[in-house]
Amino acid sequence: MGAIFRREMKAYFTSPVAYIFISVFFFYTGTFFVSINIYNAISDLSYVFIYVFLIMMIMLPILTMRLFAEERRQKTDQCLLTAPVSLFSIVFAKFAAALCVFLCAMSIFAFYLLALSAMGANIAWSIVWGSLIALLLLGGCFISIGVFVSSLTENQIVSAIVSIIAGFLFYMMDVMAGSLDSLINSNRNFAALKAVMTSLGLYTRYAEFSSGILNLESVVFFLSFIFVFIFLTVRVLEKRRWG
């Protein structure tokens, strides 16, 4: 697993991908930080945390799009799949590498917090820690979706676009569930659909963290979400062997 993780990290940082991702992340969050926190002298970073999901949803698929699609296209997957390593190790190593690049991007928040501390701001640490944990878990969810989609295709562009759409649907699912209210009166089945959509949505749970509520159930949900998509990726690779 370590060998694949190191190779992926090296591949990210010897190509422009990681640098572009980190730069865009810094620029985007920096814009919100300066325009909201610095100009208005607000110590609360929750606005930045709320809006950062958009850039994660669009940019994380760029990190994950090549993970399996490129391996298949270049036929380098033969090197991995004929080596004495389990499929889970291969998938998890790639997931962990993408998550590490995301962690590097998240490190900018340390700078923002230092800047706010230096300016003598009163920082609500419970909200900050909750938001950072939520951000990491949400990033993990988007990455796991991206890894899964990448295993389905040889085309990186298709992989990125489908990952963005899937990420958006999962993120907004609980919000979209609200629009079913008018239909529930005509058909009770919509109530069950609304319940499923609400429970699978990422937005409400993420927003909860950002307001300083550390909900263990949501932590378990995020971790299970990641595990399910890693498991599905393993199954896709396994199924291809038997295909």
């Binding site: 190191r6 270049q74 036929k75 380098t76 033969q78 090197c79 991995l80 004929t82």
Partner: peptide
């Protein structure tokens, strides 16, 4: 798989790596 060394029809090479890095990667992978 530990017993086998395999050269497929199209060599499974990571084009962005040096030969040294690639062989070290395979050494760790195996």
């Amino acid at each position: 798989k530990r017993e086998i060394g395999y050269l497929p029809e199209q060599p499974p090479l990571y084009l962005d790596m040096t030969v040294k890095d690639y062989l070290n990667f395979v050494y760790d992978l195996k």
